[in-house]
Every structure is written in C-alpha cells, then in structure tokens.
C-alpha cells in the first residue's frame, strides 16, 4: 500500500525537482554552493509558508486569492507600527517582538475576515478573496501614499539578522519554513483536523452528516493561512525593510501553483503538504537556474516556467490516473 503510493503519483513532482537540481548542477558549478542553496531556500520560505497554509484551504474545498496583497498589507502595518512604537520602546528585542505580534494579529484578523465571509456570509471563496485582494492592495498603497513604507534605519539594522542570520549556518527563514512544513505534514496526515479538511473537500454534505463542524474547520483553515502569511511577513520585512504597492504581487498564484504541482487536488478532497514544499522548490529553482545559466532570452523566462509547471502536473496526473486516484 505504502509502496504503491510512493512509486507512482508521488514521483512526478519529486522527479521534476531532481531533474531541475541535476540540470542546475550541470549548467553552473556554483549552483550547489552553500551560498546559492541558502539563497534559494530562503527565497522559497515566504511563498513556502503561505503555500503550506494554502494546502489546507484548497484541500477543504476553498481558495484564497488575497494572500499576496495580504502580505503587503501586513508588512505595511507592521512597519508603521514599529516606527510608531520606536520612541517609547527604543531599539531592541521588545520592539521587534511587538512588531511580530502586530504582524501575527493583523494576519489572523485578515484571515478571519476571509473565513467569516466564506462561512457565515456564504459567499464563494473566489469572490470573497478577489474582493479582499483588491482591498488589501489598495490599503497598502494608500498607507504608503503611493510610495514605499520604510522601517526606521536603526531599527532595521537591529532586525536585519532575522532574515540573514541563523544557527549552524542555516538561516532563520529556512528553519521556520522547515518547522512549518513538518507541522503542516503532521497536521494533514496525523490529526483529526487534517482528516476533516479532506473529508469536507471531498464531500461537505457527508462530512456534515458525520458530525464534522464544517464551517468551523473551514474558518480555521483561513485563519491559519492568515497567521502563516503574518509569519512569512515577519521574515520578509527584515530582508529589505520596506513595503509598497508592488510587494507580494502574484504571490497568491505562485502559492496556488506550488500546491497543485505538489499533488493537492484543486477541487479539494486530497492534500499533500510535502508535495507543496516540493512545488515551491521547483518554482524557485526554475527562476534560479534561468538566472544562473543564459539558456534563453530573458523574455522567454515566463514561458519556460509555464512549460515546467504544466509538465510537472501532467506527469503526475498521467501516473495517478493509472493508479485510479
């Protein structure tokens, strides 16, 4: 049983990842250097954490288009809050912790808004999150006065190590991403919550008759996603110390693409968190390889990405349908 699962449908994205790694190593000797690997993993961390949350939302039959705008909005709020608290708290750990708290709270509230509109007001998730996507994006542009919101220079110098440093040479974004991925995998496979998500996504009526609190579980998936967007923002802000209307553009589509590449069904009912992680890495690696090797005109980068995304999914669908899934 386990062997059957590992052999076929799961191999698609994993094989694509391995091919990409081999290709990268073949094209450029610096590809496997620790510096480059750190860069790619740290870059993947933002979309990665968001995509793990997105896996639960999609598995339970939902969708969230607002995460990119939400990340920009949270980053804006966090920076404004930290700048405002600077005179009272001074530069130090309390300021950073307060900023992190703001990011998480705003993230949870934003997720709660999406979730309540979907579960209580019973509006299609696509429409709800399309709406909030526009709202969050405009709000951050407005907060920034059309420009860029920047964290105070001194505060930023203090906060900067949260992105760039770590322990044992592994940077914090990578550590956090790994922890989130493991927690997500466990939650999906080994907890009641994960099983409920799959049950609701396959057939919410049956789930309801089986005494699953469908609305509550759905709401929690959105809240969790909001919190993870907040967590991603906490690690994003120290990177450049700024947020603007162009922060996080198209993150939602990258996150959704990663989830689907990883083998989660877009219509819900089946979720695979580690597959999502593979999907995120595939997307980051394509960009990285295209930058490292002058394979094609940069005008065609988008086309190459598109081809690989479709191929990764085709491989897997072909094999999984043979398996009867």
């Amino acid at each position: 049983m386990l062997k059957g699962r590992l052999s076929l449908s799961t191999l698609g994205p994993l094989a694509a990842l391995l091919v990409l790694i081999a290709l990268g190593a073949f094209l450029n000797s610096n590809f496997l250097s620790s510096g480059n690997i750190t860069n790619v993993l740290a870059r993947s961390a933002f979309i990665g954490m968001i995509a793990v949350g997105m896996t639960f939302v999609i598995t339970s039959g939902g969708l969230d288009l607002s995460v990119g705008s939400m990340a920009a909005f949270i980053a804006g709020m966090m920076i404004l809050a930290m700048n405002a608290m600077l005179p009272t708290l001074g530069i130090g750990v309390p300021l950073v912790l307060a900023g992190m708290a703001v990011a998480l709270i705003v993230g949870v509230l934003a997720g709660l808004t999406n979730g309540l509109l979907v579960t209580r007001a019973r509006i299609e998730p696509f429409i709800v999150t399309l709406g909030t996507m526009g709202i969050f994006r405009s709000l951050v542009t407005w907060l920034a006065d059309g420009g860029t919101i920047s964290l105070d220079f001194e505060a930023r110098q203090f906060y900067r190590p949260v992105y760039y440093d770590g322990i044992f040479g592994i940077t914090w974004p990578i550590i956090t991403f790994a922890l989130v991925a493991v927690a997500g995998q466990v939650a999906m496979r080994h907890t009641r919550f994960g099983r409920y998500c799959e049950a609701i996504g396959s057939n919410d009526k049956v789930a309801r008759y089986s005494a699953v609190k469908v609305e509550w579980v759905r709401l929690m998936t959105y809240v969790m996603l909001g919190m993870l967007v907040g967590l991603a923002t906490i690690l994003y802000v120290p990177r450049l110390g700024s947020a603007s209307g162009s922060t996080g553009v198209l993150w939602e589509l990258e996150a959704i693409a990663a989830v689907i590449i990883g083998g989660t069904a877009l219509k819900g009912g089946y979720g695979r968190v580690w597959g999502t992680v593979v999907g995120v890495l595939i997307l980051s690696l394509i960009d990285n390889i295209l930058n490292l090797a002058d394979l094609v005109s940069p005008y065609l980068n988008g086309a190459i990405q598109g081809v690989i995304i479709v191929l990764a999914v085709v491989l897997q669908r072909g094999k999984s349908s043979a398996e009867g899934r």
């Binding site: 920034a144 059309g146 420009g147």
Partner: peptide, 8 residues
C-alpha cells in the same frame, strides 16, 4: 495610479 515608487 501609484502602483510603484516612480508612479507614487
């Protein structure tokens, strides 16, 4: 509209 720094 003000979508990036320059336009802002």
């Amino acid at each position: 509209s003000a979508t990036h720094g320059f336009m802002g």
